[in-house]
Nucleic acid binder design. Structure first.
Length: 207
DNA sequence: CGTTCGATGCACT
DNA sequence: GTGCATCGAACGT
């Protein structure tokens, strides 16, 4: 199977479908420093103004504008004052929704990732380079400049390399204070790069 | 293994 | 002024 960049139609579908199908796909960021890429192993869906955890919950604001835009664009925002999180906008403009990318299995540019993750504390090992939404954006150098980036473009995109994700599981979203009742988190079972407490990653339903 | 807690900046009320 | 879609160090078991 040839490598194929996901097109806009991929994102213009129900968000839960996109969240599930993004597992096994490869997120790529090309910068002046070089290429960095990893297989997506964990995602979460944030769907509509009725979802209390979705940034669209308060209705349209300056920050959440990308959620109200076309599917297939990036929504990047600063969380806790220090971590950038990256989402893929899904569905049509009328329905503000997106998929948060929470973890990657590093594939390319791991040296670059290590450099970007270094700085203080101990140097993360390979499965930890892109474990967690704040860690993967740092490893791939995704920040405010990538907000509203076209994911069908030539700098930041998701492609299908024909990789098999493995067994997929589904459970409640983590790290949020509201909307924890929705089982809108998807991950590759037993993958070492998946984030979250161990308890959240076991004994959940197969998909 | 587990839990707690501080760092840190900005959108929003 | 308040509250985060987080992380990792520091501690307890």
């Amino acid at each position: 199977m040839p490598t194929r960049r996901l097109d806009r139609a991929f994102y213009d579908r129900p968000t839960l479908t996109v969240a599930r199908e993004l597992l096994g796909k490869v997120l790529v960021h090309r910068t002046l420093e070089g290429m960095a890429a990893g297989m997506i192993v964990e995602t979460e869906a944030y769907i509509g103004e009725s979802d209390p955890a979705c940034h669209a919950a308060p209705g349209p604001t300056a920050r959440n504008a990308p959620l109200y835009g076309r599917p297939g664009f990036a929504y990047v925002y600063l969380n806790y004052g220090m971590h950038y999180l990256v989402n893929a906008v899904t569905e049509a403009e009328a329905k503000p929704a997106a998929v948060l990318i929470r973890a990657l299995a590093p594939l390319e540019g791991t040296d670059l990732m290590s450099q970007r993750r270094a700085g203080k504390g101990r140097v993360p090992r390979e499965p930890e380079l892109c474990r967690g939404p704040g860690n993967l954006t740092r490893a791939l150098a995704i920040g405010p400049d990538q907000n509203r980036a076209d994911l069908t473009g030539r700098l930041l995109w998701v492609e299908d390399r024909g990789l098999t994700a493995g067994r997929i599981r589904r459970g409640p979203r983590i790290g949020i204070r509201v909307g924890t009742d929705r089982s809108w988190r998807f991950w590759v079972a037993d993958h070492p790069a998946v984030s979250g407490p161990r308890a959240a990653n076991v004994r959940q339903v197969d998909v």
